[in-house]
Design a protein around this nucleic acid. Structure first.
Lengths: 206, 206
DNA sequence: CTGCATCCGGGCCGATACTG
DNA sequence: CAGTATCGGCCCGGATGCAG
């Protein structure tokens, strides 16, 4: 990518990670080291030549390194993109309510979306276990002692189970839509959805 | 910009602000409403047709609005990009040490760079007034009661004055380089530079 | 003079085919 | 599985035109 040629933190950051697809590759690598094929799988739509090109550049700039087994992983500096990636994801909150028919979906993206809204400790947060079923793998949200953890797969005896299309399950979980709207959008609720308000997610940007 | 077609917060954010120049336009508008000509001035290198194109798209997506006098400004939602922009700017810290000869420079960019490292309250932060002279306008950093404010222009009787090239003045201020290195790079120091350590900037990512 | 609009060459992107 | 190669088209960059 052509440099912006500006002595400014944002401009220099974008010189390195501003190209198309680059931050999405970072998103995938935030989950840990990944093989080339796993990255292709996790980035539907990316042409294979672009994926290679981006990985090469990210290696050169020191954002990405490789393990002995060939897997790609973020450098410590690259891991520092966590804050920026999550800040952008949170900012997009208002865009997430509208389903857009043909969008691809992966359950680890949902994990990030949910974690981004529940980072940090909130002493007034209620203890709760919520199972999220949408598409492939179920995901379980565990709120305890003011913190929220996410667990891949189901756990025994959740307090609430939400099943249905991603944007509505997430919408109900984060309080973007009402229970009535969620039901109308095909969400199947088991347990008392009213308890969800006790999770106290971070507010949307607008 | 072509959509990534992914139901993911980051991907939808980048669908809106991921195009080249868009986040730099946001950076300029974070300083308040701006005229078209001011934006051109603050974005050296941008072609005029791209600036117009980006502004139109940002209006459509609701990131930017216009005042009665024609000036562009961020919507409340657009203002929410502050966190992401600053997170990216902080992440670029390690890139800022190296000067890159021909980079453009504006003093409001330096304001952002400095503010990004001193956001929030730190009760162990020492009270201090530092004048930064680099290029055009002087800038004064005022640390008081654990908070840091920046003031355009000089104030009477600063504790420390740093004058010289931007990357070295900022480098010394943020503790990226030693006083000896700064002097070698042409920084002129008045007052006791040792006091700068008491400002306790946020650490670099790596 | 400000605030754009138009035009054009080149480079980046996207899709697919191919190889070790 | 992990990339290479190729090619059409779109986006970007630089220059210029032009109306209020």
């Amino acid at each position: 990518m052509r440099s912006y040629g500006q002595y400014c933190g944002l401009a220099r950051a974008l010189d390195v990670v501003g190209e198309r697809w680059t931050l999405l590759i970072v998103r995938e690598l935030l989950d840990g080291p990944r093989r080339y094929g796993q990255l292709l799988e996790g980035l539907p739509g990316i042409p294979s030549n672009l994926l290679v090109d981006r990985l090469r550049r990210m290696e050169e700039s020191g954002v990405v390194g490789r393990l002995d087994d060939g897997r790609y992983r973020l450098s410590p500096w690259g891991q520092g993109l966590h804050e920026a990636v999550y800040a952008l994801g949170r900012w997009a909150g208002p865009l997430m309510a509208k389903p857009r028919g043909r969008d691809a979906f992966r359950s680890n993206w949902m994990r990030h979306m949910v974690i981004a809204r529940f980072e940090g400790v909130d002493s007034r947060r209620r203890d709760l276990v919520v199972e999220l079923r949408t598409g492939d793998d179920p995901l379980t949200l565990i709120s305890a002692a003011g913190r929220v953890h996410l667990h891949q797969g189901p756990v025994a005896d959740p307090d609430v189970v939400l099943a249905g299309p991603p944007e509505s399950v997430v919408g109900l979980l984060l309080g973007r839509i009402s229970q009535a709207e969620a039901l109308g959008a095909g969400v199947h609720v088991t347990g008392r959805a009213r308890l969800l308000a006790g999770l106290r997610p971070r507010g949307e940007a607008v």
